[in-house]
């Protein structure tokens, strides 16, 4: 047991951060918000389980990432579902730099995108990512290495294309 949980404080501290991370993974802000809101609904329903873990935000992130994963695998079905949570509260304007970055991320395979985002945006070490995703640390390192190279190439290509 890791002590009483201040859910409101966790919500205020983590919501925006998790939405940005999920956005970087899935490239869709509404889908990202849905995933994070679903994670908090799960957290509310499984409060004891959440209280028992050391890193509440990591637990929420795992739930949100898994939700996105099932969305990728079955997007055609999932996107027809009604939203279960309030959804995006207001249209968020995303600047061109951010769009370019997220498009480049979308050029990675899903597994590579996850590790890049967790490492470079959530500031997790490879051991922490391995624990969160339930995969060997060596796999994290190899995915990270491949994804970084691919991402750099994708952004270079885009710059060249824009200059042309």
């Amino acid at each position: 047991m890791h002590g009483a949980l201040d859910l409101d404080a966790l919500y205020q501290a983590s919501y925006r951060r998790l939405v940005v991370q999920m956005y970087a993974i899935c490239g869709d802000l509404v889908e990202a918000e849905d995933a994070v809101q679903e994670a908090f609904v799960t957290a509310i329903r499984k409060r004891r389980q959440l209280e028992a873990v050391a890193n509440h935000e990591a637990w929420l992130r795992t739930v949100a990432v898994n939700r996105l994963r099932s969305g990728w695998r079955h997007a055609a079905v999932v996107r027809r579902l009604q939203p279960r949570v309030p959804g995006s509260q207001a249209a968020v304007e995303v600047g061109p730099d951010h769009v370019a970055l997220v498009r480049a991320l979308a050029g990675l395979d899903a597994a590579g995108r996850e590790v890049v985002v967790l490492h470079h945006l959530a500031d997790l070490g490879t051991a922490e990512i391995a624990a969160e995703l339930g995969i060997p640390e060596g796999t994290v390192k190899s995915r990270l290495s491949r994804a970084r190279a691919r991402l750099a190439a994708l952004l270079d290509e885009r710059e060249e294309w824009e200059r042309a």
């Binding site: 919500y11 205020q12 919501y15 925006r16 951060r17 939405v19 940005v20 956005y23 970087a24 802000l29 918000e33 809101q37 949570v85 309030p86 959804g87 509260q89 207001a90 968020v92 304007e93 995303v94 730099d97 951010h98 970055l101 997220v102 480049a104 890049v116 985002v117 470079h120 945006l121 991402l151 750099a152 952004l155």
Partner: peptide, 16 residues
Amino acid sequence: PDLTSLRSLGDRVQPP
């Protein structure tokens, strides 16, 4: 590439 610039997007997200 620097992904951390994406973090500023969070300021514009309004949680329900």
